[in-house]
Design a protein around this nucleic acid. Structure first.
Lengths: 185, 185
DNA sequence: TGACAAAATGGAGCGGTGCTCCGATTATTC
DNA sequence: GAATAATCGGAGCACCGCTCCATTTTGTCA
C-alpha cells in the first residue's frame, strides 16, 4: 500500500471510530470522509460498505469480547461468568448504538463483513452457556442462538431512551430466565 | 372539510395503510403521496408528521388491542389472558415493521401523535398484569413499564429476519419470566 | 348565474443521504 | 527525469424529509 493511501486509511479509521461512537452506526459516511479531510471516493475504496468500515473499527472490541469469554470460562462460577459476559456484551453494543441491528442482519448473511465477527461472538457466548448448563446453573432448554437473541433484545432495549431507567431491572429479569435456581439475585 | 380535501384524505389513508403494511413504518412518504395521486404538500398538510399519519392509520388497531385487553380481563384465567394479549400485541407490531421503535420513542414524548395510543396500550397491559399478580400467577416484582419493555423487545426481535425461526421459543422464554409456577408450558 | 374569497393543491426547491464513476494528481520505479 | 501505475476527490445521480407558495378548485352570496 502506498504511503499516502496508508495515511488516509489510518485517518479514516480514527475519525470513523470517533464518529460512530458519537452518533451511532448510522452516522453519515460523507461526514466521516469530510472530517478525515478525504474525498468520499477514497472512503469507499478503502471500505466498500458501511459494514466493512464498522468491522474494521470494531474488530479489536469483538476480539476482546471473545477473549474475555475465554478468560471467564476458566473462572470459578459458571453462572456469574455467563452473566458478566452478557452484561459486557450489551454494554459494548450500547457504546455503538445501532450496531446490534446490523449484527442481527449480519449473523445470517455470509456476505456481510460483520458476519465472521458475529458468528465468533455467538460461539463465545454459547461456550459460556454450555458450561453453565453442564454445571446445572443455566436452564437446559436454551441454545446459543437463543442466548444471542436475548442479548440482542437487551441491547436494543438499552438503546431506547425511554427505557434507560429500567435497563438494569430488565437485565436481571432476562438473566433470571437464563439461569435457574438462583433465588433472589 | 371540502369534498376534494376529504377525498384526498381518505385516499391517502387507504394508500398509506397498504404501503406501511408492505414496506414498514419507514416507507417513503413521497411514494405514498405519489401512489395516492396527490402532491407531497397535500400529504403534509393532512398529516404534518409521519407519526400523525401512522396514528390515524393504526388508531383502530390500537383501540382494538385495548378493547381486547378489557375482554380478556373478564376471562377465567388471568395468566392465559396476559399471555394471549402479549402475543396479540407483538403480532400487531410485526404487521407494521418498525413501529415498535417509534412507539418506544413516543411513549415518553408527549408531543408525539402516537403518545396517547402508546400510553393507552401500556395501561391496558398493566391491568392484565396486575390482575395476574393479584391471583398469584405473575411475578410480583414487575410493573407495567417493564412489561411494555419486554413486549417491545419481543416485537423487535420478531422483526429481525435471522430470528424468525426462534420467535415462538423466545416468546415462551420471556413469558416464563413474567409468569410464575407454571411448570412446563 | 356570475363574481369573489377562502380553502386546498402539488410540485419546485433546499439540504441532506448513499453510492458510482472518472479525470486529475501523486507516489513509485526504472 | 520520465513513464507508469496507484490513488485521490468531488461532481453527478437518484433518493430522502420537509417547506413554501403560485395556482387551481370549491363553496358562498349577491
Amino acid at each position: 500500500m502506498r504511503v499516502d493511501a496508508r495515511k488516509n486509511y489510518d485517518c479514516l479509521l480514527a475519525v470513523a471510530s470517533e464518529v460512530f461512537a458519537d452518533q451511532g452506526a448510522d452516522a453519515s459516511l460523507r461526514d466521516i470522509a469530510r472530517k478525515a479531510g478525504v474525498g468520499l471516493g477514497t472512503l469507499y475504496r478503502h471500505f466498500p460498505t458501511r459494514e466493512a468500515l464498522l468491522e474494521t473499527v470494531l474488530r479489536a472490541s469483538f476480539e476482546a469480547l471473545a477473549e474475555r469469554a475465554k478468560v471467564l470460562e476458566r473462572s470459578d462460577s459458571a453462572d456469574e461468568a455467563l452473566l458478566a459476559w452478557m452484561q459486557e456484551t450489551t454494554e459494548f453494543t450500547y457504546s455503538q448504538r445501532g450496531i446490534i441491528a446490523l449484527m442481527m442482519d449480519a449473523i445470517e448473511d455470509t456476505d456481510s463483513e460483520l458476519h465472521a465477527s458475529c458468528v465468533m461472538l455467538r460461539a463465545a457466548g454459547t461456550a459460556l452457556l454450555t458450561r453453565a448448563q453442564a454445571e446445572g446453573k443455566a436452564r437446559d432448554d436454551l441454545n446459543g442462538a437463543e442466548l444471542f437473541d436475548l442479548i440482542a433484545a437487551l441491547a436494543w432495549l438499552r438503546e431506547q431512551p425511554s427505557h434507560a431507567s429500567r435497563a438494569d431491572r430488565l437485565f436481571d429479569i432476562v438473566a433470571g430466565a437464563v439461569l435457574k435456581d438462583r433465588g433472589d439475585v
